[in-house]
Amino acid sequence: MSELALPEVVLGLRDVHKSFPGSPPTEVLFGVSLDVLGGELVALVGPSGSGKSTLLNIVGTLDRPTSGAVRIAGYDSAELSDRQLSAVRARELGFVFQQFFLLDGMTALDNVADGLLYTGTGRAERREQAAEALERVGLGHRVSHHPNQMSGGERQRVAIARAVVGHPALVLADEPTGNLDTRSSRSIIDLLHELNDEGATILVITHDREIATSFPRQIELRDGRVESDTGSALTPAGREP
């Protein structure tokens, strides 16, 4: 990204509602609207049950909103088929989960390379980029280790490498430090800062106040509504500063 280019709107939510079927239906999100610009590092906070994970699933196209619009990297998710949404996830989105979700039967390198499995990239190229991504997260020396031979912090680094290996438009992380001790948490958060400095756009759900305040922007969710938003420090493209 050149110094002069203005950041793109990577994620745009307009009046997003979500309710889960049942009797009575569980209403979780009540009109969430927000924009995230390319290059932002955003913390999504809020009490348990406020709908953070539900929101993240909708942003990640893993779930569809009951009403409202979701735009990701220029695509209107409502207009896309399941197949097309899968392609958007493969190319434009990276996921990091609290439980890591690494496959034990494969090495760290192959786990990271699977981040590109559904993008149509050839195997040699996938492995090459995976090695690079592992280098970026500081695990260049753990390439051929299996996840069950690694510490929790290392596993989460592998998972982060898998999320960023394809240089997605947006990285989504749901409580990435939730299963880690304080020190490992600290280093994972530092890593997210580094990746953001290199240009990655990252949205992180966290319960940790200290972590949240270390991020340039915080959005607080309460009872399915945006309670507060410190706002973007960047200037969106096509808008007046």
């Binding site: 893993l62 399941d82 197949r83 899968s86 989105l93 439980q99 699977d114 559904y118």
Partner: peptide, 16 residues
């Protein structure tokens, strides 16, 4: 289940 979910998140289609 979680592997299936993960693969869908990585971009796998239903067919995959």
């Amino acid at each position: 289940r979680s592997e299936i979910g993960l693969r869908r998140a990585l971009g796998a289609t239903r067919r995959h």
